[in-house]
């Protein structure tokens, strides 16, 4: 059985009276794509921010590669990266310059070779010398994905990496991610509002609602448990239940 690379225990985050993440525990196994699903405000992004050390948990622990994030931040973050539609990169730098800065921040070796490789892999040759402010949203998504992949992380956090992108780009990104994940064996925590995408991408899914885990398992297990036809129906059922309560 694959070992856990991420172990989260009783993780809680409270912002004054509001509990964004409420006592959740889960593992991410080596080589697994774990989907984090839930409506807006369910606590998905807050969880990822805690895993990246950007938000301090109120309670609970985060261990990665057997190390506590609270005390081994630097060692852990060298082996982790993230991408999101909602982040950006310095606008006045070209795509290549931004990648160089990131490569230096992670103290990578053979920087130029790595940049050339990632640019080729993500078909970014035509935008290599383009200023970041002139990139389209699809190109920006490829850049943030490139910066995450280039550092060769063991764990990748993807927060809605395909949100607001056109279907062609979404398909390309998904295909690249699946292929890359298979070849490198990396572990991914994936959030999305797109149920079909979630079913397609994830080995296992955790359903968050109001900061709590309400369902966990493979897509088919969850669908069966709730007696629905697909994940979208499960999502709607849970969201409506939340609306009534």
């Amino acid at each position: 059985m694959a070992k856990s690379v991420v172990e989260i225990r009783n993780l809680t985050k409270r912002f004054q009276d509001f509990t964004a993440v409420n006592d959740i525990s889960f593992d991410i196994k080596e080589g697994e794509i774990l989907g984090l699903l839930g409506p807006n405000g369910a606590g998905k992004t807050t969880t990822i921010h805690m895993l990246l050390g950007l938000i301090t948990p109120t309670m609970g622990s985060i261990h990665m590669f057997g190390l506590d994030l609270a005390t081994h931040r630097e060692t852990i973050l060298r082996q982790v990266n993230f991408s999101s539609t909602y982040i950006s990169m310095p606008f006045s730098l070209t795509v290549e310059e931004n990648l160089k800065v990131i490569a230096r921040l992670y103290e990578l070796k053979h920087i130029q070779q790595r940049i050339n490789d990632i640019i080729k892999k993500l078909e970014m040759e035509d935008i290599r010398h383009k200023l970041t402010r002139k990139l389209s949203s699809g190109q920006m998504s490829r850049l943030t994905l490139a910066k995450a992949i280039m550092t060769e992380p063991k764990v990748l956090f993807l927060d809605e990496p395909t949100a607001s992108l056109d279907p062609d780009i979404v398909n390309k990104i998904k295909a690249f991610l699946k292929e890359y994940q298979r070849s490198e064996g990396l572990s991914i925590l994936y959030t999305s509002h797109n149920m079909r995408e979630m079913e397609e991408m994830s080995n296992r899914i955790i359903f968050l609602q109001r900061g709590k885990i309400v369902a966990e398992g493979t897509a088919s297990e969850i669908i069966q448990r709730y007696g629905q036809r697909d994940l979208e129906e499960v999502f709607l059922k849970l969201a409506r239940e939340e609306g009534r309560s």
């Binding site: 990246l52 950007l54 630097e74 973050l77 982040i87 990169m89 310095p90 921040l105 992670y106 103290e107």
Partner: peptide, 18 residues
């Protein structure tokens, strides 16, 4: 401010940078 305007703070502080 440059990092704030470029929404780059997350990239920096989610990296090993101290």
């Amino acid at each position: 401010l440059e990092e704030m305007w470029a929404r780059n703070l997350m990239n920096l502080f989610a990296s090993p940078l101290t």
